[in-house]
Amino acid sequence: MLKILNLTKTYGDKKAVDNLSLHIKAGEMFAFIGHNGAGKTTTIKSCTGLLNFDNGDIYIDGVSIKDDPIACKKKLAYIPDNPDLYEFMSGIKYLNFIADIYGISTEERNEKINRYGDMFGLTSDLAQSISSYSHGMKQKLAIISALIHSPKLLIMDEPFVGLDPRAAFLLKEEMRKICDEGGAIFFSTHVLDVAEKICDNIAIIKDGRLVISGKMSHVKGDSSLESVFLELEDKDSTFGKEWDNA
């Protein structure tokens, strides 16, 4: 569903992402872990067409994002780390705007707005201006807007930040559902417990380079993800080790 091949992105002299390759298959939930400034957001933004990259390519469901960005964007949904939404709109107007962009029928959008609105406890606030929303409410609205067009691929940057425990639980449930229905999820997180519990696969990135990637059980072995992550963070020479399909 998402194939990142030799992705390289530089900012001036600094290589933010260095020759990164990952493959996220349909039905997989893939966690992307790394320290602050490791290159997670740069990778995610490159995958969603928000950032140009210097080398490599990214394929969404077999289509290169360089060749046909619009076809790729139709298949994915993106939730950023900071939900900067249109503050001049109300929640419902924003959702309808997104539904219009993705060409969702009136019946389908109404059904989804009601379902997800009720699920995340946002329905009664949908007529309010987004400028009056808390961070968590904006995050919920960003999640609903991402789910409204039933994406095949959901890419999220720190999706649990700002969510209350109930909303975080519901999001995890919904993520599982998307994967069970044949979709794929690629997300970054610092909450290692969550990644450990819900993800099938994981990749750890350090200073723009892939440290390790593969099935969760293989990467962490008998230890906890936290101890593996901390151990790898301290090492310098394990770049590029791939445990995929081991």
Binding site: N96, A99, D100, I101, S105, R109, N110, T123, D125, A127
Partner: peptide, 15 residues
Amino acid sequence: EYKGNSERKLSAYGS
């Protein structure tokens, strides 16, 4: 209070 959706579907450009 939000009382149901009354927005009509628009084209992407119209939106």
